[in-house]
Design a protein around this nucleic acid. Structure first.
Lengths: 339, 339
DNA sequence: CCTGGCACTCGAACAGGGCGAGTGCCAAAA
DNA sequence: TTTTGGCACTCGCCCTGTTCGAGTGCCAGG
């Protein structure tokens, strides 16, 4: 449909616009790129590209800027993923090594990604759904009050305070703790419910049964509730590089970023494997129509346990951003596997 | 020094400027406030106030705006703390009740505070230094690999993975766990080091001693390292209400907000009891010269375990903000005491 | 199908002028 | 001594008109 040269023109437009942040005209294009044709020809090509909806002009007698559709084509067919330089790779290593716990890993990753891409970084905490139980701990806080601590193989820790229907002895507690752990340790979250369903019955004391049921209910609740995932954000200061019409643009973006639900939904809709780029309106969110989201899954094994990515203006350096996101995701996966 | 009426004029200037965000002139002042004097008199007073450095004019032939010094005087002598309305109090209750864990409490508090004050909210996690140990858990991940989990009475959980110098048996592990807990549970963090220092010697196996030492070292390290506190931020979208000259102002503020260290330092420098208001340059941070920080300690008992506050433009509604901050701190304290 | 030329469009940038809010000062009144 | 009304003056804001130039679309010729 679109000739090779026209694609080349589109690529040039995107690259120039990303670089200069200003609408690009036919003359400037021929000067900066060796297209081998005259401005007039480029103008004709531009007219076609505009007709097809790949570029637009903000107003008459101004240059063209890519539309969302234009960026989409660029990303799909014209842009590669730009690998990181060796120094950058080394920086990632240095920055990520030495993280002491999961919070630290996620925190460092966010800062790193923000710095590398000069955009807003979003990192999802490893999901509970996909992970397995490393240990379940039960503590007695008061005669009829327990604390449940759940530790996953990704290093995540969740705790809940439980009010028991009746006092629960230390012996029963130790008993429950042992039985619980022997059944669920090493198991996937999804499997837990059926593994523990007959536990209450195995207790003889009626009152204890009630408590055991309560504990199990809380445990299962923790599993389900926490599918509502957590995430960390960083680099919001980079939003200031957005544009000139700024206050209007930035406000809804900041609001969207604070709504973690929105971001989680976005990440959730991304492809399970490989990188996902959502451009402008594709995000399906009012406040993010002038932003693009580049995301990718990461995980300790071959399997992705969570996603991370960056949010930036649709006018972003896609190859570079994608390269950084991919590289960081890989390294984080390694770090996670080691701990 | 300053007559009663001049103070009244300053108060009027601050109130009007906060309301309108525009420099306020003598005529407008006499119209909006019943000062009982003519504009000319007000002009004279203004001249004095300007001489003393409480107000300034952005340019000739414009109204006056308060300086940092002016705000300081306003806060210290002219402004009370505006109590919240009953609906607002009820809203706080509804919003904060039903928090399931510490993260949730902090998260809700941040959102609440941001919403109430329409500014940026900052909430520090309850400090480890002040709190006591609720439980220490040791798990065996691999023959020579342990996980240490530390639970505090404020509901905070910290975990660390420990590589042992030698394999450590289940029996020894249970032993260590029991001894450790019997010594430190219920104790304050500051007391822990001396309570455990003789633990390694009480183990007979030489190899075990090494492991025990390692575990203790990690435990103490966790205490110290985590005095580097954590905090949560919210309501950054409210920064868009800052001013007209926006991109210039907002950038350094966003950067400062991301530097949690800076914020922690700020909160740390605040008074231990009572509310602290730091205005503009008093923050001692480049990027925050046009912001004020209102902070207050909160805690479960009578004692403050952490601080919370808001960051907003120096041109903020101080009485209202202070009222909201104080009210939220009290409720959070209650919630914390209950759990 | 490409190219050079040409007339045209329209926003950005600049300059000038009127407007008006606000000031400072002064002399008179309280 | 303090307050007040009057008055001249300043200076930023806003509106208007004009110029300038980048960029476009179209067309005729190669």
């Amino acid at each position: 449909m679109l000739s090779e040269r026209r694609l080349e023109v589109l690529r040039a437009i995107v690259q120039d616009y990303v670089g200069t942040e200003e609408p690009v005209g036919s003359k400037a294009l021929t000067e900066r790129h060796k297209l081998g044709v005259s401005p007039a020809t480029v103008r004709n090509d531009m007219a076609v590209l505009e007709e097809e909806g790949y570029i637009a002009q903000p107003h008459t007698s101004a240059g063209r800027i890519p539309t969302d559709k234009g960026y989409r084509l660029f990303v799909d067919r014209l842009a590669g993923v730009k690998p990181l330089s060796t120094p950058e790779r080394r920086a990632i290593h240095n920055f990520l090594d030495g993280a002491v716990d999961l919070d630290d890993v996620v925190g460092r990753t966010v800062r790193l990604l923000a710095q590398l891409t000069r955009q807003v970084a979003v990192v999802q905490y490893p999901s509970l759904t996909r992970s397995t139980v490393r240990h379940v701990e039960l503590l007695s806080l008061a005669p009829a009050r327990l604390m449940l601590v759940l530790i996953t193989d990704t290093g995540r820790v969740e705790q809940r305070v439980i009010d028991c229907p009746a006092p629960f002895g230390e012996a029963s507690l130790a008993d429950l703790r042992a039985r619980l752990n022997s059944r669920v340790v090493g198991r996937r979250f999804a499997d837990v419910p059926q593994l523990v369903q007959d536990l209450p019955e195995s207790f003889e004391d009626t009152e204890d049964r009630g408590t055991v049921s309560t504990v199990l209910a809380t445990l299962l609740e923790t599993l389900v509730e926490e599918q509502e995932e957590r995430l960390m954000i960083g680099g919001t200061a980079n939003l200031t590089r957005f544009g000139h019409d700024f206050p209007l643009t930035i406000r809804p973006v900041l609001e969207a970023l604070e709504e973690h639900v929105v971001l989680l939904k976005l990440l959730g809709e991304a492809k399970e494997s490989g990188m996902t780029v959502r451009i402008g309106h594709e995000n399906g969110h009012e406040g993010l129509t002038s932003t693009s989201v580049v995301s990718v899954g990461y995980g300790s094994g071959g399997e992705a346990v969570a996603k991370l990515g960056v949010v930036g203006p649709t006018r972003m350096d896609y190859p570079g951003t994608m390269g950084a996101v991919r590289a960081v995701a890989r390294y984080v996966g390694q770090i996670l596997a080691e701990s």
